[in-house]
Design a protein around this nucleic acid. Structure first.
Length: 545
DNA sequence: CTAGGGTTAG
């Protein structure tokens, strides 16, 4: 039955006067049971009131359960208050609960502060000595921030001194912490010295190698590990996706299905759909969509978002829209993926319409939504509207423009041939513009044939030392586009040392079950002549309006 | 009476 029915049944025994005839321990147990069953914050508060009213604040189990209940509601202030009102020195168990409560929040320093306080008391009272749980939570707290490695290493030392290094959970927390700080060697060392390991230990280390770009080593461990569960497969597949090894991600996913003993979980679907999107593998994507529907996988916001993104990137915007329409719990991510899909398909007006609908539903955009909507404005010629959104985003939604938003603004201003304004906007940015910004500005100069401004911009770039040292390359490209080959040669000889050997841009699309691969400046496709013919036709039609 | 490992979008 539902929690609230249990709640009513249990509560009725306490609210009446019957409690007076029962011994205190009975009441203790009853409130404890009650706390375990309640779901609502108000119920927790009522029980808390009873505990205070009946002076039961010294009961460990009861206070522990109360802390746990407040924590599940995210009420950290209440957690802290209950803890601080404990009538004597709290036992280790209660310290652990409070340290744990902060360990996965954005205030993990609070866990460390409590841990230090605990050590202070622990020196004088054997009641509050850290144990294996304390170390597990504290080390976990160190892995949630970027700057707590030193503290974590201190904990590691204490762990060894107290002899907790043989504990699997403590060891796992350590491996995972070193992985977060990209200390693969340390992670491997802890792993090697652990007397026993489980699936979590192996998975953490696999993640460590995958995160640091060593996929061969990750693969080797993955094959070697005695047991694999859903999370292990998720780590492996996400590792491939993170390194743009999309075909390997799909192969890995199919291996998992072939083994047949595990069901893919949400994280796996999200990663695999992302791989399909990058490869333009609509058939595999559709198959996964079908699989999700057939197996009754809950259409969470994450799943819906990934499906929408996959269909949009595979060129099936109608399917993307359909998934969106069939999703009943739409959140910011779902809306954003549809808006960005519409924008990518050049359906700027429709994107703006959806944006308005989203705002009307009381959903606040984030920086990704705003990039999409600014792009949509620029692709549908709604220049003034886009500029207005840019200059009001801070006031309306509290999002200060980041470099990617400036990129959109440059695009908007350029389309309106307001190049001087664009240059001015870049100069007033409170961050260093990157090469992408400069390139966007320069290509706008080229489109509008404004060579004078382009030259001024480039000299500004060189003087300011911006563009990651690429200023001279930009200048040489500009001279090349102007046909001033003498200048190109001069710059290339004096300022540019080696040729750019970056890998060429690459894209995929699946048509009639065949995946086509294209490289930038590709001449190798078997039907390149037809493709170029079509491309010319498209370009002609674009330039008509 | 409390642990430790997982994903995405421009």
């Amino acid at each position: 039955m539902c929690g609230s029915c249990d709640y009513l049944r249990l509560w009725s025994g306490i609210s009446s006067n019957t409690f007076l005839t029962q011994p205190m321990t009975q009441l203790n147990v009853r409130l404890y049971q009650l706390l375990k069953h309640v779901r609502l914050l108000t119920q927790t508060k009522q029980i808390h009131a009873q505990i205070v009213f009946r002076s039961l604040g010294g009961s460990n189990n009861l206070i522990g359960e109360l802390i746990r209940s407040y924590r599940t509601h995210g009420k950290l202030k209440s957690v802290r208050k209950v803890f601080s009102e404990y009538p004597s020195l709290p036992p280790t168990f209660l310290w652990n609960l409070v340290i744990q409560a902060y360990s996965k929040t954005s205030f993990t320093e609070e866990s460390l502060y409590l841990f230090k306080e605990m050590l202070l008391y622990g020196g004088r009272h054997s009641l509050a000595v850290p144990d294996d749980y304390t170390f597990t939570f504290t080390i976990t707290a160190c892995s949630r921030q970027r700057t707590l490695l030193a503290f974590g290493q201190n904990c590691h030392t204490m762990v060894i001194k107290h002899g907790y290094d043989s504990d699997v959970c403590v060891g796992n927390a350590l491996v995972s912490m070193y992985v977060v700080y990209s200390r693969t060697v340390s992670a491997q060392k802890v792993f090697d010295e652990m007397p026993q390991r489980d699936t979590i230990t192996w998975t953490s280390l696999v993640k460590g190698y995958a995160m640091n770009g060593n996929m061969p080593q990750a693969e080797k461990l993955f094959i070697k590990m005695p047991d694999r569960n859903e999370v292990s497969w998720a780590v492996m597949i996400a590792g491939y996706v993170g390194h743009e090894m999309y075909n390997d991600a799909l192969r890995c996913f199919n291996d998992m299905l072939a083994e047949g003993n595990l069901e893919p979980n949400e994280a796996i679907f999200v990663s695999v759909l992302s791989a399909c999107a990058h490869l333009g593998q609509i058939s595999q994507g559709k198959w996964i969509h079908f699989y999700i529907d057939k197996n009754g996988v809950p259409k969470s916001s994450n799943i819906a978002t990934s499906l929408i993104d996959m269909y949009a990137k595979c060129g099936k915007i109608d399917c993307a829209k359909q998934v969106f329409d069939e999703t009943d719990r739409r959140d910011l991510l779902t809306w954003t993926s549809l808006i960005s899909g519409l924008s990518m398909h050049g359906l700027g007006r429709e994107a703006l319409q959806m944006f308005d609908e989203m705002l009307a539903k009381g959903i606040k955009p984030d920086n990704v939504t705003l990039v999409s909507i600014l792009n949509a404005c620029s692709h549908s010629g709604q220049v003034e509207e886009g500029i207005a959104i840019f200059y009001n985003m801070e006031r309306l939604w509290g999002i200060s423009p980041k470099i990617e938003h400036f990129g959109c603004l440059i695009d908007l201003l350029s389309r309106a041939n307001r190049l001087e304004d664009a240059f001015k906007a870049v100069k007033t940015m409170d961050m260093d513009p990157d090469v992408i910004i400069w390139r966007a500005l320069l290509s706008a100069c080229r489109v509008h044939g404004n060579a004078g401004l382009a030259e001024r911009i480039i000299h500004h770039v060189i003087k300011a030392g911006d563009g990651g040292g690429e200023g001279h390359l930009l200048l040489s490209n500009l001279y090349a586009s102007l046909g001033q080959w003498e200048n190109v040669r001069r710059i290339r000889e004096s300022k540019i040392e080696k040729e750019d050997i970056s890998t060429p841009g690459c894209s995929y699309i699946e048509i009639d079950s065949v995946v086509h691969e294209f490289l930038a400046a590709d001449k190798l496709h078997p039907r390149i002549a037809e493709i170029n013919l079509k491309l010319n036709e498209v370009m002609k039609r674009i330039s008509l309006d």
